[in-house]
């Protein structure tokens, strides 16, 4: 798994590629916690290069979303494809997290 972060018009964009699984999920949670502590409370997880996610990955995403909510911010997801889209949908995460096609669409909406 590789995590790249950037700022885009007030949003913190976290691009995750590779595999978000039992071996890597805690790294994402830690990185996001650091970003939130530094004030990045409008966070976008950009997952177009993510190939695989398991329940361990879902748990991290849920923890990050709860932390953001508590901090008065929020989490958006974008770029879901293939198995990743299927897993997020089966788990019902697309019902409590906003999902967009691209980062641009999240930013446009503000």
């Amino acid at each position: 798994m590789e995590i790249l972060t950037r700022e885009e018009r007030g949003f913190t964009v976290v691009s995750v590629s590779g595999r978000l699984d039992a071996g890597t999920a805690s790294d994402l949670e830690k990185d996001c916690a650091n970003l939130i502590n530094k004030g990045g409370t409008k966070l976008i997880l950009e997952l177009s290069a993510l190939e695989y996610v398991s329940s361990a990955g879902l748990r991290s995403v849920l923890a990050v979303a709860k932390k953001l909510k508590a901090a008065g911010g929020g989490l958006s997801l974008c770029g879901l494809t293939g198995l990743v889209q299927e897993v997020f949908s089966i788990a019902g995460f697309d019902s409590f997290l906003p999902v967009y096609e691209t980062v641009e669409k999240v930013v446009e909406k503000g």
């Binding site: 879902l58 709860k66 909510k69 019902g92 019902s95 409590f96």
Partner: peptide
């Protein structure tokens, strides 16, 4: 898991 719950209510 109840997949209809809100973010606040969801457990892992």
């Amino acid at each position: 898991p109840d997949i209809k719950l809100s973010l606040e209510e969801r457990e892992a």
